[in-house]
């Protein structure tokens, strides 16, 4: 579903992605972790073209990014992206946020889009917040609207860029619960997170990145109980200490 082959990327002189080779199968849930600045956000932002790659191949849903034949706008409709800072449209209600793309991109009739939008908001536990503006919602609620906004497009892939890092601790679990639900329905997911509980529960694989390179991959059990490299051991000892 997603395949990186020898992908490199630079920000100026900074080599942010170093020879990444990695593939994600359909219905697979992959958690990406690593210290900050290790390139994990950049990695998943490349998948929907928010960042461009310098060399190597990146094939998403059978289409090679950067090819003339690849319509990026069309490909993006198949990829949901959840941001750390939610990025809900502040001038639109929760329902308008989740129906905007279905109406304008998928060309679904408004009534139909609103019906499935309500259904999706109810599914993420916001059945009473259809007409609330983002500023009237808590961080956890906003992030759940953001997830619903992606799901309303019926994407093939969902990408999460540190979805719980901007949240107060008591709101993290409500967002993770929704993400677990999405994973259990068989969505192909790539999740940048340090939530190891989530990784253990639903991920098939954990990818550990450091300094722009994939250092280690393994099942959650392997990775957490028996990390292979010094760097991953050092990283785990820091995040699991508390």
């Amino acid at each position: 579903m997603i395949e990186f082959r020898g992908v490199n990327k630079w920000f100026g002189a900074l080599h942010v992605l170093k020879d990444i080779t990695l593939s994600v199968e359909p219905r697979e849930v992959v958690v990406v972790c690593g210290p900050s600045g290790s390139g994990k956000s950049t990695l998943i932002r490349c998948i929907n073209g928010l960042e461009t790659i310098k060399d190597g191949d990146l094939v998403v849903d059978g289409q090679r990014l950067g090819d003339r034949a690849t319509n990026m706008t069309e490909l993006r409709t198949e990829i949901g992206f959840v941001f750390q800072a939610f990025n809900l449209y502040p001038h639109k209600t929760a329902l308008e946020n989740v129906t905007l793309a279905p109406i304008h991109v998928r060309k679904i009739p408004r009534g139909e889009a609103e019906a499935s939008g309500r259904e999706m908001l109810a599914k993420v536990g916001l059945g009473d917040k259809f007409n609330a503006y983002p500023s009237e919602l808590s961080g956890g609620q906003q992030q759940r609207v953001a997830i619903a906004r992606c799901l309303c497009m019926r994407p093939k892939i969902m990408l999460f860029d540190e979805p719980t890092s901007a949240l107060d601790p008591e709101m993290i679990s409500e967002v993770l619960d929704v993400m677990v639900g999405v994973a259990e329905e068989g969505m192909t997911m790539m999740v940048v997170t340090h939530e190891m509980g989530f990784a253990r529960k639903v991920a098939q694989r954990v990818v550990f990145m450091d300094a722009g390179a994939v250092v280690e991959t393994g099942t959650p059990d392997e990775f957490f109980s028996d990390p292979k490299t010094d760097r991953s051991r050092a990283f785990l000892s820091k995040i699991l200490r508390h």
Binding site: L50, R76, F83, N87, Y89, V105
Partner: peptide
């Protein structure tokens, strides 16, 4: 904020739709 444009971009809105909506 750029995050707004990125969110619109990520959901597949065209350049005109991003501007307009």
């Amino acid at each position: 904020p750029t995050g707004q444009v990125e969110a619109a971009l990520a959901s597949g809105l065209s350049q005109w739709q991003r501007m307009r909506q």
